[in-house]
């Protein structure tokens, strides 16, 4: 399974999770795990998603999420999972 980590950081407001989830659904990307919290009014979320269905269109998904991030006023990173595993797990 090809997985990616989507992280969202920014000023909290209604509709961030809904926006990101809807965008992922449009791309046929399944959410495997979500962790979300508010720290000092700053919304932070990391999602583990399954990319297998759209692996060839990674760039499209990333562009869409970047555009969404701009609209919502938050920063969205979309990175393949392996970099986190490589660094944090032996």
């Amino acid at each position: 399974m090809n997985k990616a980590v989507v992280t969202v950081v920014g000023q909290d407001k209604p509709g961030i999770i809904a926006g990101v989830a809807a965008n992922l659904a449009q791309h046929q990307v399944n959410i495997l795990d979500v962790s979300q919290t508010i720290m000092d009014d700053i919304f932070t979320m990391s999602m583990l998603v399954n990319l297998t269905q759209l692996d060839k269109q990674f760039n499209l998904l990333q562009d869409d999420l970047n555009a969404l991030g701009e609209k919502l006023g938050v920063e969205i990173h979309t990175q393949r999972e392996e970099i986190f595993k490589a660094m944090q797990q032996v």
Binding site: V5, T37, T44, S46, L48, E81, F84, M87, Q88
Partner: peptide, 9 residues
């Protein structure tokens, strides 16, 4: 995966 590790990276 631990959120703090994701954040660290």
């Amino acid at each position: 995966m631990d959120t703090s590790q994701i954040k660290e990276t």
